[in-house]
Design a protein around this nucleic acid. Structure first.
Length: 798
DNA sequence: TTGTCGCGGGG
DNA sequence: GTGTACGCGACAA
């Protein structure tokens, strides 16, 4: 083990920390659950601290202070240590409590700059580095969460509110579902509709939280809906909302960009955004995990609980679905349905949290931050920055000041479209973790990081990740150990892949960002991609598309998979060590439409669509289905089939044979009916006109509807969750409009596959031309070289 | 047409 | 003492 592994994992061995609460008085409360058993609460103390670039403010403050370890008769409570190295923030100043530091430094600073300052945060960011108390504690002690504890040993409770609406100003909570760590679902229901009944629900909820005593509270959109709603209702009812482990301490606020708008004292909405904190417990929002997941994978149909649970196979066959704005009404007539619905919610959340939550859990073993902060932080600024700060302080080195921008723009990755249209025998090759590899090969790290701590983190985490993956493979499937090692591996991957993003982060975001270093990484990346493209082209393949770290190319007829692998290996051998080009997959055919927009046909006949041109959640279902069918024919070299699909779709539309649902698109109403009434005379908007035309003169902001065009305007179909009412099928849609739309927005996505004349023939109006003109037989899909891209292959990289 | 802003989710 | 994505639609210029 390398001595500097402290930079990765901290150094204090205290196991099983499940929550930390620290305050300005230097008191820290640490909750631990060794081996997943009984909870232990420990009191600790620490000296609140900050970093300063000079001691001048302390000097002029008149407050006695002294270097650490230096005897002084006046026994000052403020002590400092001067850190080494070239960094600007070189004085680590501490006191027995924060207010002592604040008073002294602010007094001095006020004198120095001739302006009254009362908070240390008011000092220029160049002059100080301040962490919240819990992070001061974790950085100073080298402790981290969850040592020797598995995810399964955490006590996690899920809860979900059912309310009469979305607006906490007048809607109420009438039911709360809870799921215990043992998997039991309980319901707390209102026994009336007045304040007193709702207050009883809240009190029973607080008691249940106290009794179950979870380390973690979870729900989907917990920070966006449930906690703010609870907070607001409790405030209205004059009830202190105590969900944490500190006696009598209600929910606290913390600033968070992705939080909800805080109500200022007078009740008016302020610009400040907050998230709520329950001291002693960690509030984990599965929506954050879903975002983080989909950011990398980009596969989810939506981010809502129901859609995600279904996507991951967590939803039961008989999952109860109720449209959001019907829940309260359904509860009055059929409460059992709402109970099943709420129970399904908490059950799915528990599954989702386990499925996607491992990475954040593992991150909390590394970075000196609370688990709930690591779950919602961006990986670069939220994880790496605290780790680097801890590394520097551990090494006794000063932190650099925020680098002033010299105006250099950040330059990005390369993207080349070499060929558009249809290609057969397609291979995908890519470099795993290109940017971290380039950082290692060329020793590219931030200029201000003279300890090269970021490079050290990347190198050690790449190695340790291989070990974690091996341990995961060795563990029994489904076991705790397997889960833990996979989670560690995922967390390490997240950190490694964020190292580049960390350097590219905005100038005030991180201590060590460096746009020049980031640009050097992308420049090397572009160079490497270009080198791979050239080397492949020299070996007789047809380049199709190259993006950042991956290349699609087509091989000549007669090549076997062994030939394909051989060229990839040959090209891989030309690259720097550590930059590993891999054979990623092979496909029967590809339709390349635009850069990042293409369709692939796999060897076993599956169609994979990528890019907004082919995957749009807003597209009308008939168009989406047409695209899938037509592209499947096209990639199977069946042009007559493309024509047939087109003709059939046109005819079905013309006859009104398609159900109405197939021509709808999904919209969200952002203006209220009153709001739209005010602007309607200036500007008519289709979705609202469709509402009015359907006899819906009142709606709520945020309501989702399915809209479609009729000859006179438009109409709407309501949705029950993601399911439309299938009995709502008047088929009064504007047939000519949808036939035109089919060609204008869907057929056009196959235009790269044909010459203009052939395209006109394949997609000719079947009502004016023969359905299957004989010339169709001779039409073959084409591919077109983008000559400029090929020519530029030999240019020097910018 | 082009640029800026806000959303994504929850009942 | 907070800090992202990315692509899209709505709206303003």
């Amino acid at each position: 083990m390398s001595g500097n592994d402290e930079w990765l994992w901290g150094w204090d061995p205290t196991p099983a920390i499940v929550s930390v609460w620290a305050d300005d008085t230097g008191r820290a409360i640490v909750w631990r659950r060794p081996q997943g058993g009984a909870l232990i609460r420990e009191e600790d103390t620490f000296r609140p601290w900050l970093l300063l670039s000079s001691l001048e403010d302390l000097d002029v403050s008149g407050e006695p202070f002294a270097r650490e370890g230096e005897p002084d008769r006046r026994a000052p409570v403020i002590r400092y240590r001067e850190l080494g190295g070239p960094g600007a923030l070189r004085f680590l100043v501490s006191a027995d409590r924060w207010s002592t530091l604040e008073r002294a430094i602010c007094r001095g600073a006020s004198r120095r700059i001739g302006e009254r300052i009362t908070r240390l945060q008011q000092l220029s960011r160049r002059e100080r580095h301040i962490l919240p108390p819990d992070e001061q504690y974790l950085v100073a002690t080298g402790r981290t969460y969850f040592r020797e504890l598995s995810f399964a040993q955490l006590r996690r409770v899920q809860f979900d509110l059912e309310t009469t609406g979305l607006d906490a100003a007048h809607d109420r909570i009438f039911l709360i579902a809870m799921r215990s760590p043992e998997g039991e679902v309980g319901l707390i229901e209102a026994d009336g509709t007045d304040d007193a009944a709702e207050a009883r629900v809240l009190r029973r909820f607080m008691a249940a939280v106290r009794r179950l005593d979870p380390d973690v509270l979870e729900n989907h959109n917990l920070h966006g809906f449930d906690l703010p709603f609870l907070h607001r209702r409790a405030e209205r009812l004059g009830l202190p909302l105590i969900l944490g482990r500190l006696d009598g301490v209600p929910l606290q606020e913390r600033a968070a960009l992705r939080g909800t708008r805080a109500a200022s004292g007078d009740g008016a909405a302020s610009d400040r955004r907050v998230r709520y904190v329950a001291p002693g417990r960690e509030c984990i929002d599965t929506l954050d995990a879903v975002f983080r997941y989909d950011f990398a994978v980009r596969e989810l149909p939506g981010h809502g609980l129901k859609a995600v649970a279904r996507h991951f196979g967590l939803a039961g066959e008989d999952r109860e679905l109720i449209r959001g704005d019907r829940i309260a009404a359904v509860y009055r007539t059929d409460p059992a349905r709402v109970r099943r619905y709420a129970a399904a919610d908490v059950t799915e959340v528990a599954g989702l949290a386990r499925l996607l939550g491992g990475a954040a859990f593992a991150l909390a073993r590394m970075a000196p931050r609370r688990y709930e902060r690591l779950a919602d932080a961006g990986a670069a600024t939220g994880v790496i920055d605290p780790m680097l700060v801890r590394a520097y302080l551990r090494a006794g080195e000063a932190l650099p000041a925020y680098a002033r921008s010299d105006g250099t723009e950040h330059s990005g990755a390369a993207l080349h479209l070499f060929t558009s249209g249809v290609a057969q025998r397609v291979v995908k090759a890519d470099v795993a973790s290109l940017y971290p590899s380039l950082m290692r090969v060329f020793r590219i790290g931030p200029a201000g990081d003279h300890l090269q701590a970021l490079l050290f983190l990347v190198e050690r985490l790449v190695d340790q990740r291989l070990e974690a993956k091996a341990r995961a493979r060795a563990a029994a499937p489904g076991s705790d150990e397997r889960f833990t090692q996979e989670a560690l591996s995922a967390a390490m991957k997240l950190v490694v892949n964020s190292a580049y993003g960390y350097m590219a982060a905005g100038e005030d975001l991180t201590r060590f960002n460096d746009v020049h270093a980031a640009n050097e990484v992308t420049r090397r990346g572009r160079e490497t991609l270009r080198q791979m493209c050239r080397a492949l082209a020299e070996r007789g393949v047809t380049l199709l598309e190259a993006d950042t770290d991956g290349i699609y190319f087509a091989v000549p007829p007669g090549w076997t998979e062994a030939d394909e692998r051989r060229v990839v290996d040959e090209v891989a051998a030309l690259l720097p060590p550590l930059v590993q080009l891999e054979f990623e997959g092979r496909y029967a055919a590809m339709l390349s439409h635009e850069a990042k927009n293409y369709a692939l046909l796999t060897g076993d006949g599956r169609l994979v669509l990528k890019g907004v041109a082919f995957r749009s959640s807003r597209a009308e279902p008939f168009g989406e289905r047409f695209l899938r069918q037509a592209i499947a024919c096209l990639l199977n070299d069946d042009v007559a089939g493309v024509r047939r699909v087109y003709v059939e779709t046109v005819q079905a539309l013309a006859r009104g044979a398609l159900p109405t649902i197939d021509v709808t698109s999904r919209v969200r109403l952002r203006k209220s009916s009153e709001g739209y009434a005010r602007t309607r005379h200036e500007r008519r908007e289709f979705a609202y006109e469709a509402m009015l035309h359907s006899g819906r003169s009142h709606w709520r902001v945020g309501e989702r509807v399915l809209v479609y065009r009729t000859p006179g305007g438009g109409r709407v179909i309501e949705e029950v969750d993601d399911e439309a009412r299938i009995d709502d099928d008047p088929r009064d849609y504007d047939r000519a409009y949808y036939i035109a739309l089919l060609r204008r927005t869907f057929a056009i996505r196959l235009d790269r596959a044909f010459t203009p004349d052939d395209f006109a023939m394949v997609f000719a109006d079947p009502r004016q031309l023969p359905l299957f003109p004989p010339a169709l037989e001779t039409i073959r899909p084409i591919a077109t070289r983008v000559e400029a891209e090929w020519a530029a292959l030999d240019d020097p990289v910018q």
